[in-house]
Amino acid sequence: MATPPDDGTRAEAGAGPDVTGGPDAPTGPAQSGRSGQSEQSAHPTSNTEYRIAHLGERLAGGDLAELGMRIESRGDSVHITGTASTAHDREAILRLAAEELPGIAVRADIALADVTAPDHPEDLS
């Protein structure tokens, strides 16, 4: 079934206190990697730049194999843009973002892939 195009969504991730990002915060059990969608970062850090990088690695290395999202710091928030294959994938991306960036507002413009046929060709003559 065709998935209709979508203009994206916005989400606030981690409205509560930052429970994993501070240097004194409990880190929980050691993690061996970032391949699972429910895993927290192996090396929690308060540095937003590195947390963004960790999110990118988790999106690439996990079940999503998602390398097409642009994740950038915008003031006090993080902006995620790109196109997800399905609504399920978009939800998974936002869930991972909330896990990796607790306490940081995440604004996402993630469109859904349009799987409809084109209505006209491009003539290259």
């Binding site: 790109g82 349009d114 409809t116 046929a117 084109p118 006209h120 060709p121 491009e122 290259l124 003559s125």
Partner: peptide, 19 residues
């Protein structure tokens, strides 16, 4: 696909070899 925003794109190519 995220660029063309469709299931596929279609391009019409002339067959006279001029291109």
């Amino acid at each position: 696909q995220p660029v063309i925003r469709r299931a596929f794109a279609v391009y019409g190519l002339p067959v006279d070899g001029s291109h």
